[in-house]
């Protein structure tokens, strides 16, 4: 398992990166933290002619907060984000989901933009981005556009980024429910690749009822899925276990998962339902406790 030969370039400015991308198009791959890409290179599943290393381009690594909207440069290391007070303050769901990404060694090197642009169906951050209606800032030579999370993840390992386009940063707008969040997942072992994961953010009214809900599941399809029906039930239903159960069931029905060697489709539905209940219970439990 050794990678095929490639040409290596390490531009030091964003302009250079975009020029190189423009020049090489699909023959090039961007190397961010490498925690997803390098395994594929080692297995020779991908064999780009050129590797454009973003690691020496400091302008892509930043975290800022503007009126509660968190902006995260694509090359922000996951560990940096996890430890950032700005992230914890403005986007606690992201802070909660990050520890589920591999181990410390992976997050020390892996980047926020890297995992999002890689768009593995079992990755956590795409579900977070979808739940929070994140905005993806994509740049190519001479232009910039914004892609909504709902439009960004097309299928497994495929995003809406076009040839020559690079993910520059993501904006996580402050949702009202932003401060009542949970990230839960279950896998075939206690830590590692999940079978299903769920990102949840709830808006809790003064009387303790759910005023708004954002739920997104991963592992239930080729891309993360927003669970609108379940969200609606949580907002409309009376507080209590029946509503939770109904929301879970609605979530299970809203998805169309596959069977694979790790789990059956039936199980993925069951798990989605369970995780909706768990996530909401966790949030409400914390609410009650705080």
């Amino acid at each position: 398992m050794k990678p095929a030969p490639f040409e290596y370039v390490s531009p030091e400015s964003e302009e250079e990166v975009l020029d190189l991308l423009h020049q090489h198009g699909d023959d090039a791959r961007l190397l961010a933290g490498g925690q997803s890409l390098v395994p594929m290179l080692n297995l020779r599943i991908v064999q780009p002619e050129v590797i454009i290393d973003l690691g020496r381009c400091p302008s892509l690594a930043f975290i800022s907060a503007e009126n509660g909207t968190l902006v995260c440069g694509a090359m922000t290391r996951q560990m940096t984000a996890e430890r950032s007070p700005a992230v914890r303050e403005n986007c606690p769901l992201l802070a909660k989901a990050l520890p589920y990404l591999g181990g410390t060694a992976h997050r020390n090197r892996g980047t926020v933009g890297g995992t999002l642009a890689h768009a593995d169906r079992l990755a956590e951050l795409p579900a977070v981005a979808l739940a929070l209606d994140a905005e993806f800032i994509a740049r190519k030579s001479g232009s910039e556009r914004m892609i909504a999370a709902a439009d960004f993840f097309l299928t497994d390992l495929t995003t809406a980024l076009e040839e020559g386009e690079m993910l520059h940063s993501i904006r996580l707008p402050r949702a009202d429910g932003n401060h009542h969040t949970a990230f839960v997942e279950v896998g075939n072992r206690r830590h590692g690749f999940a079978i299903v994961g769920l990102a949840a953010a709830l808006e809790i009214a003064a009387d303790g009822t759910v005023a708004g809900a954002r739920l997104a599941a991963m592992g239930v399809g080729a891309a993360p899925v927003r669970l609108h029906e379940a969200e609606q039930i949580l907002v409309d239903g009376p507080a209590g276990d029946d509503t939770l159960r109904a929301a879970g069931e609605a979530a299970a029905q809203a998805i169309d998962p596959d069977d694979d060697i790790h789990a059956s489709a039936v199980y993925r539905r069951r798990l989605t339902s369970t995780l909706v209940r768990r996530a909401v219970q966790e949030i409400l439990g914390n609410e009650a406790g705080s």
Binding site: V186, N188, I195, H262, A263, V266, Y267, R269, R270
Partner: peptide, 19 residues
């Protein structure tokens, strides 16, 4: 006995299916 299989076994025993 992966979780998926255990869930299937429980479903079969209880006569339940899915969530």
């Amino acid at each position: 006995l992966r979780p998926s299989r255990i869930a299937d076994i429980i479903d079969a025993a209880l006569g339940t299916n899915s969530a």
